[in-house]
Structures are given as structure tokens and as C-alpha cells.
Write a protein that binds this DNA or RNA. Sequence first.
DNA 1: TTAATATATGAACAAATATTCATATATTAA
DNA 2: TTAATATATGAATATTTGTTCATATATTAA
Lengths: 114, 114
Amino acid sequence: MDTCQVVCVNQERVENAKKKMKCDKVLFDLAEIFKILGEPTRVKILHALSKEELCVCDIASLLNSKQSAISHQLRLLRAAKIVKFRKEGKMVYYSLDDEHIANLFDEGIRHVEE
Amino acid sequence: MDTCQVVCVNQERVENAKKKMKCDKVLFDLAEIFKILGEPTRVKILHALSKEELCVCDIASLLNSKQSAISHQLRLLRAAKIVKFRKEGKMVYYSLDDEHIANLFDEGIRHVEE
DNA sequence: TTAATATATGAACAAATATTCATATATTAA
DNA sequence: TTAATATATGAATATTTGTTCATATATTAA
């Protein structure tokens, strides 16, 4: 709620940066996406789905996790439109919603592996 | 700690995915990077730094935040080698450590804006 | 319909984390 | 040295969030 107390601000630099920056909404949404990707279980789920369409129990087995834990995470990913799903009888098969996430992963992996 | 209880697992799909996946360490590190990017204050800091080198008080002013809050966040970003800094007298100027983060941001913004 | 199975979800708990306040450190100027 | 200023950081607090357990819903088969 409070603002900056220091007095060494260079207004020119600040204004220049501010001028070039995306609006708050875009940056907030961007943080939201990264937050969703910033959790090991979800990263593994998404990375697996980038290789193969899988049902909930496949994922739980692959990650050695409880079914409910995976289901909760998939709910988040669905809400964020990061994964899509199709039902086939009792089973629900998940896959990535579009290429963007895979691209983000590739770029991130390049950063991590170098 | 427990493992999957369900019995509908398709081992072929699971094995195929597992075979193609990056190792746990890479995926964990990837989640770490995304986690760091997944916070509005840090996103704003990094986005600002992608446009202009700034000192701590510039950033605090730009974001209407307390100096100490910014300083704590910069510590995280430094530890993760996402930003670098140079000292000039009392001032400390921060900038992005390399292009990877800017690339991730660009890719993320494309996802968010579409 | 009833039983069995796959998935979803609410509530509770535990763990992680962002911010604030107070204060420490470092640098410059007087 | 002392005062002033920029930044860093420890401790405490409040909030968020991931997992678990129990249970609900949905679908198929008998």
C-alpha cells in the first residue's frame, strides 16, 4: 500500500522503462501462467502430456502419485486452458491444449540445460 | 509416499512417455525457474529490467513498493542467476543475466495476448 | 437396479512464501 | 570520525497452495 521511500530515483530511467512495458494485466496474466508451470508435479504432468496422450491413472502411475493429487492438478491446468481432455467411457484422456506450452518448455529446458 | 492405486494403467503409453521424458533433475530445475517467474512482483521487475538497467530504488518507485520487498525479491533473482548487478558507489544497478529470460517472456506474452 | 471402476472434489492440514518492520552493512561526504 | 543515504537481511506474520482422506459423480457391465 505504501510507496517508495527512497530519494535516489532517476525519473528518466523509470519513465523510459514504464513507457516500454506491457500493461499490468498482461504482466499479471504472464505471472499466472508461470506460476502454474512452477510446480514439479505439474511440470512432469505437462512434459509427459507433450510426449503422449494419457489418462488420469496413467499419469498417477507414471508419477507415483495419488489419483486425487493428479486430479486436483489437472483441474488447475484445465481451468488455465493449458490442457484439454476427451472422455472415452469411464476414462478421461488429457493432452496439451496448444503448442505454446511446449514452446515455453523447450525454451526453459534450453535455459536449464546449458 | 504412496503409489497409484488404480488399475486402468496402460503400461505401453506410460513406458513410451517415460522413455521420451527428460530426467527428474531437469524437470525439477525447470519448475524452479518457472516458480521464480510465477509471481507478479518478480515478473514486473524482470520485464522492467528487460527494457532498462535500474537501481533498487528505481524499481521500488516504478512498482510502488517498499525498498525491502524489492531487495528480497532481487536476492532470489540473483541466487537463481536470472539477474546480474554492478555497483556504482552506493547504488546497485540490476539487469537481466542473459537472453533466455527475455525469450521466455516473449513466448509467454505471445501465449497470454492471443 | 446393483456392483465395480475412473475421475472429481470438498475439507483439513502442512508446508512454502511474500511482505513488513526493524536493523545491519556499505559507501560517500563533511 | 560522524552523518547521511542506498541496499541487504533476519524475524514475524499472513496468505497461498499441494496433498491427503473421504466421499461424490459418472459410466459400464452384470
